[in-house]
Amino acid sequence: MKSFFRKKKPEAVYCQDWRNWCEVVLREVRFRPDHEAIARELMAHMEDGRADLERLGYDRTLAEQRTLRAMGDPAEVGRALDQTHKPWLGWLWQATRILLLALSLTAAMTLFAVTGLPELVQRTRTELLWEPPASAVWAETEHAVIYAAPGEVREENGHITADIDLWIKMRDPLAAGQEIQLWDLTCRDNWGTLEIRDWPNQPESRYWQPFGLEDMPGGWQRFRQGLELTLDQPPQWAEITYPNGSADWKLRVEWGEEP
């Protein structure tokens, strides 16, 4: 009972007579876990009654007294409530809920252990992370499909850093010479040629794939990769080119006017 009044918002101040009335009701109800819900409902009822009387022009004190008088004998109400909120029934219900919860948890843990669900969860997460956005540009060669999308642009130590996100899908197995050697990529933005500063693929990077190259159905493998560019000014676009004889590809990602 006390906890119910403590939890109420400060503006919901009840008069002492209401509290006393409720306390007498609850004294008769033996199943304590239901006390709070009962008190809340009875108080809401009295608030409704008071509001109605205030609308009719009663001042607050008189409205509270009239409301309380209309509620009847608290001990009688409490004894009647106790007939429904029986302790043994209440505890049985509580015990059943705890038991069901424990059973559900056990079943879930067993399912995890037996079916390797953690790996499935991780793979699903990777799957979602891997999905290129609809706005990504892409190039296709005989042995690979490469998607690229503009990433974050930020200012760091007086320089501009821009990310390009890559999603690469390759045939599996690849013959010698068909692999994509990412360090052969060149990059140019609208301000001129630039150097690729970093290839973030470490565990702390968002491109990190715990399973490395992943097998896909139909004889494919895939992986994600980031390109970190260091620039003097925010780019409007950047072009990445992969020179590979007949299998050249070029992709242009655009950040727009104000990245």
Partner: peptide
């Protein structure tokens, strides 16, 4: 309906003949 609404509706429909003590509605 909620409790208070039932009390007022009961009073209204019975032309204020049935005005039970409001707390007794909840049991």
């Amino acid at each position: 309906m909620y409790g208070y609404q039932m009390i007022t509706e009961l009073a209204r429909r019975s032309d204020h003949t049935f005005e039970l003590k409001e707390g007794t509605l909840y049991p």
